[in-house]
Amino acid sequence: MKQTMITLSFFALLLSSGCDNTSTSSLNEKVNPPEQPSKPIQVQTLAWVGHYKAFIPCDACEKKLVSLQLHQNKTYTLKEMNFFKQKIKQKESSGIFTFDEQNSNLLQFIDDKTKQNRYFSLHDHSIEPLDQNKTQFKDFEKYQIPQVQNIEVNNALKYVDIQADLFKSEKIESNGIESTKLTYFFEINNHSDRPLKLRDSDIVLVDAKNNEHISIIENDPLSPVKPNKTQHELVSFIYPETYQAAYIKIK
């Protein structure tokens, strides 16, 4: 009889212990707060990310157009156009780039296909190609490639594509009025079978007040764009400093 009582007491103790554990576990589940969703990480755009574009000297041709895009993931796309009297040679490449550990302004480009290295020096709002010894070219100021900004082009011409990138912004005085001079790098693609003729009055800058400002073409008069050809020109606009540029209109 005593043995039976001891056995029953033992099982009762086990049941009591099991109930206590279940209760404690349930209580803990109720007390623990739910997991908070992680906040999204804001990625800051780096100053060097963007598009760089300019003409630079060329020993083997008349001039060279460099169009370089640096991406935030440290990859690049590079387009180089060599202009000769009778033809244009174009070369495109892409790859990755790294910052030099000793000089954060020195970039090393590694071509995806050829694995060849090229070097560039990064400045405020511009970039400069260097030779294979990482030194500047003679007349290095002519090798500065500024960072450009695209502006909307409202084009009424058929079979013509025009892209305009802000090349330079200057504060000047025009007729006694504080003004802004904006110079844009134009890429004019003529897809028609006829030459395209553009005058300065055909290209206007429209400001935020809907005022129109006639262009000033550096190579005036602008030579006709040949059929199915692309032409690059520098086009400037001068307008009062108090207004902002909205878009460019081609009449």
Rank of each mutant, 00 (worst) to 15 (best):
87 K>R: 14
53 K>M: 14
203 I>L: 05
81 M>H: 02
250 I>F: 08
248 I>N: 08
203 I>E: 01
177 I>W: 02
125 H>G: 06
55 F>C: 05
70 L>H: 09
142 K>V: 09
34 P>R: 14
110 I>D: 07
225 V>S: 03
12 A>L: 15
227 P>C: 04
145 I>T: 06
155 N>L: 06
173 E>L: 05
226 K>F: 03
125 H>F: 15
230 T>G: 05
123 H>I: 07
124 D>R: 14
188 I>Y: 03
210 N>W: 01
19 C>I: 15
1 M>Y: 06
44 Q>W: 08
249 K>N: 08
238 I>M: 01
145 I>M: 11
110 I>F: 05
157 L>S: 04
118 R>K: 14
29 E>M: 13
208 A>W: 00
247 Y>M: 06
242 T>Y: 10
195 P>T: 06
191 H>W: 05
211 N>T: 01
114 T>C: 03
149 Q>C: 04
126 S>C: 13
104 S>Q: 13
73 N>L: 10
174 S>R: 05
18 G>D: 09
140 F>I: 11
71 H>P: 00
143 Y>M: 08
37 P>R: 10
9 S>E: 06
28 N>R: 14
84 F>H: 12
97 F>D: 09
51 H>V: 11
239 Y>K: 05
243 Y>Q: 12
248 I>F: 09
52 Y>D: 09
51 H>K: 09
22 T>S: 11
121 S>G: 11
208 A>Q: 04
41 I>K: 08
153 V>T: 06
156 A>P: 00
113 K>R: 13
99 F>S: 11
1 M>H: 08
182 L>E: 12
147 Q>L: 10
216 I>P: 00
201 S>F: 03
110 I>G: 00
240 P>S: 12
232 H>V: 07
94 S>N: 11
199 R>Y: 02
59 D>M: 06
38 S>V: 13
73 N>C: 08
204 V>W: 03
176 G>C: 05
5 M>P: 00
33 P>A: 11
129 P>C: 10
46 L>N: 10
182 L>M: 13
22 T>F: 13
166 L>D: 02
75 T>K: 07
66 V>G: 05
29 E>R: 15
23 S>M: 15
186 F>P: 02
233 E>N: 12
191 H>P: 00
192 S>F: 03
251 K>N: 15
185 F>Q: 02
118 R>T: 15
136 Q>F: 15
117 N>D: 09
162 I>A: 07
144 Q>E: 11
105 N>L: 07
48 W>M: 14
237 F>L: 05
204 V>P: 00
79 K>M: 08
137 F>V: 03
4 T>P: 00
251 K>T: 15
60 A>K: 14
227 P>R: 07
64 K>Y: 03
162 I>H: 06
235 V>K: 06
218 E>V: 03
247 Y>W: 07
217 I>G: 01
215 S>H: 02
228 N>E: 09
249 K>C: 05
54 A>P: 00
201 S>H: 02
200 D>S: 03
217 I>E: 00
96 I>M: 04
175 N>V: 02
